[in-house]
């Protein structure tokens, strides 16, 4: 009946947020959400399996904090162009996570953090090519990705 309950629920919530809560829109939203999840089911994507979903707010908090920090860092680099030289460079990181959803979440996190860009993921040898705007301390970047994000993601997605 409902192949992706979480997706259905999010779609209903989105419909009600966009249209305002009325009983009519609740019914319409449920209809749209159920048919959309059936359409999704025929694509047969991997189901995300959450092991420790209660760690999601922690991940969210860490990411929000890091985005604020790197926003300031990148803004300073841009405004100070010419005076202080930054050191852009490529960085290859080997990942241990295999779960597709977890890799996608990591890609979204690293891309939305200014200063680091996810360029290319190779699923054969599970390496990702990143471009970093200020690659002063390569080991520190590697450590941040592996220990700060990847460990947490591996706990969340079993």
């Amino acid at each position: 009946m409902l192949p992706y309950p979480l997706l259905t629920l999010s779609l209903i919530l989105m419909w009600l947020l966009l249209n305002g809560f009325t009983p009519g829109h609740l019914v319409l939203g449920i209809l749209v959400a159920v048919f959309a999840s059936w359409a999704m089911a025929s694509l047969r994507p991997d189901r995300p399996r959450f092991a420790k979903w209660y760690l999601l707010p922690k991940l969210f908090g860490i990411v929000l904090y890091d985005i604020v920090k790197s926003n300031i860092a990148v803004a300073l680099i841009i405004l100070k162009i010419g005076r202080r030289s930054h050191n852009p460079g490529f960085l290859t990181v080997e990942l241990d996570i295999e779960n597709h959803v977890a890799v996608a979440v990591l890609a979204v996190v690293l891309t939305s953090t200014p200063g680091s860009a996810w360029l290319e993921y190779d699923s054969n040898d599970r390496t990702v090519l990143l471009h970093v705007l200020d690659l002063d301390n390569e080991a520190q970047w590697r450590d941040m990705i592996k220990n700060r994000y990847e460990k947490l993601l591996m706990e969340i997605f079993a």
């Binding site: 926003n71 990148v74 803004a75 852009p88 471009h131």
Partner: peptide
């Protein structure tokens, strides 16, 4: 605005790609 300035002034493509993420995050 800072992101747009960076997009205009950073020297290489891979550096320029970082600037608009200021606008899309905070």
């Amino acid at each position: 605005l800072i992101g747009a300035i960076g997009f205009l002034r950073l020297p290489t493509f891979y550096e320029r790609i970082h600037a608009p993420t200021l606008g899309t995050s905070w």
